[in-house]
Simulated assay, not measured.
Amino acid sequence: MKQKILYVEDEPNLGKIVNDTLRLQGFEVVWEQDGALVMEHFKAFEPDVCVLDIMLPNINGYELCLKIRELQPQLPIIFLTAKVNTEDLVKGFEAGGTDYIRKPFSIEELIVRINNQLQLQQIHGGNNGPDQDIDEMTIGKYKYRPQRYELEAPSGIINLSSREGELLHMMAGKGSQIIERKELLLKIWGDDSFFNSRNLDVYIKKLRTYFSEDDNIEIQTLRGKGYLFLVR
Rank of each mutant, 00 (worst) to 15 (best):
D201N: 10
S212P: 09
R198W: 00
V84A: 15
L120H: 09
P47A: 09
Y62A: 10
Q220I: 05
V90S: 04
G96H: 06
K225C: 06
I107Y: 08
S106G: 06
L56M: 12
N58K: 10
E213P: 00
G125N: 12
E183Y: 00
I17D: 15
L207T: 08
I158A: 02
A153Y: 01
K182N: 02
L222I: 10
V49W: 04
E180A: 06
I188W: 03
I157P: 07
F211S: 02
T21A: 15
G26D: 11
Q177F: 00
D53C: 04
L71T: 14
I178R: 01
S197L: 00
R69D: 06
V49P: 09
Q220C: 09
Y142M: 08
S106T: 11
Q147Y: 02
E108A: 14
H169N: 10
N13G: 15
I114W: 03
N115L: 05
Y227E: 04
I54A: 09
E32V: 13
V30W: 11
Y149P: 07
P47D: 03
K2H: 15
L228E: 07
Q72A: 15
N196L: 01
R223P: 04
L24Y: 13
V231K: 10
R181P: 03
Q3W: 11
M39Y: 07
T98S: 10
R113I: 10
S212N: 12
V30E: 14
L230F: 04
R208C: 01
N116T: 12
T221S: 11
R102G: 13
Y142K: 05
E28G: 09
Q74Y: 10
N13A: 15
L110F: 07
M1S: 15
R69Y: 04
H41N: 12
W189S: 03
E63S: 14
H41K: 15
E11M: 11
F211H: 00
F93A: 06
Q33W: 08
G224T: 02
V84I: 15
I188V: 00
D201H: 06
S212I: 00
I111K: 01
D53I: 12
Q25L: 11
Q220W: 08
Q122M: 13
A44V: 09
G92K: 01
L167G: 00
K16D: 09
I114N: 01
K187G: 00
N216K: 05
I219S: 02
R232I: 02
Y62T: 05
Y149M: 12
E32C: 14
V38A: 02
Q177N: 04
P146M: 08
K141V: 04
P47Y: 01
L222M: 03
K103F: 09
P76I: 12
I101C: 07
I111R: 10
Y203N: 01
E32P: 03
L186R: 00
Q121M: 12
Q119T: 12
L110N: 07
E213L: 04
G175R: 07
I5S: 10
G226F: 03
E109N: 14
I111G: 13
E213G: 05
L230N: 05
E87Y: 14
L185W: 03
K143S: 03
F27Y: 06
V231G: 11
H41I: 13
I219F: 05
N196K: 05
L110Y: 03
V38Y: 03
K103S: 08
H169T: 07
M1I: 11
I107P: 09
A153P: 05
S212W: 05
P154A: 10
P146N: 08
N159Y: 12
I178M: 10
L207Y: 01
E180D: 06
M1Y: 13
A95E: 05
G35F: 05
N85E: 15
F79G: 07
